[in-house]
Amino acid sequence: MWTSPPPPPIFRGLATLLAFFGIVIAHSVILLGAALLGVLVTLSVQGRLRAFARFAGAVILPVGLGLMIIWGLVRQGTPDDMAEPSIRAGVLYATIVTLRLALLGAVFQAAFLALPTPKLVNLLHSFRIRGRGLAVIVSTLNLWPDFRRHVENIVAARCARGLMPDRRLITRLRQLPLAVRTLFISALGQGLERADSWEASGLIERLNTLGARANGASDCSPIAGAAWLAMAALWVIAATSGWP
């Protein structure tokens, strides 16, 4: 399934939404755990496991730990259960929420992160996003790596002028407002020039035509799309039924 042609964009979007719905209503640790494993395998095949690991370390771990402490030790129960304190119930609840969070992040990454940017344009176009909205989204995505370099250049310039003479916390904190100011002003000036140039060259209209043309001749497989939707629907049924 992973190597077959991708599903048409609209199927991808619908399947993802269904998956989210199922995740939010699922209550079984085993089901959530199995699903997470499945998605992690997908991510690994897509080569995006490292991105998930970063997210897991930065968000899931601290949140999971906090949840265990709060629901397991402090509250010793679930939010709706005002019965006698039960550490087990609290830990179970914490586990479910943590798994849910991990799944929500992992599914989002599996569905969209592996998309090369051209396919993303098609996706947006098929969701009827045109004109200004389309231009803003694709422009931001395309500019991001370059913008990150600009941020590094600004910090480098401050270092190179002796404005960040050491690496203490207080010195680094002092860089923030001035670096952001320069970042903002230079980005704003560039953004205006770029938008002027789009207008002068009529590029927004051309972008729409490009998007429409690309969607007409796509290599998407409706069968793959149906498969994605079927899997998502199965997932929702499993989640609702409370199985196992």
Binding site: V136, L143, F147, E152, G191, L192
Partner: peptide, 23 residues
């Protein structure tokens, strides 16, 4: 068209800056 991308980039860029300066 000019300002919305800048707003997005600045929101995300400040996050990068904060991460870069380890704040």
């Amino acid at each position: 068209l000019a300002v919305v991308p800048v707003g997005i980039l600045v929101n995300l860029g400040i996050g990068t800056l904060v991460h870069f300066l380890k704040l």
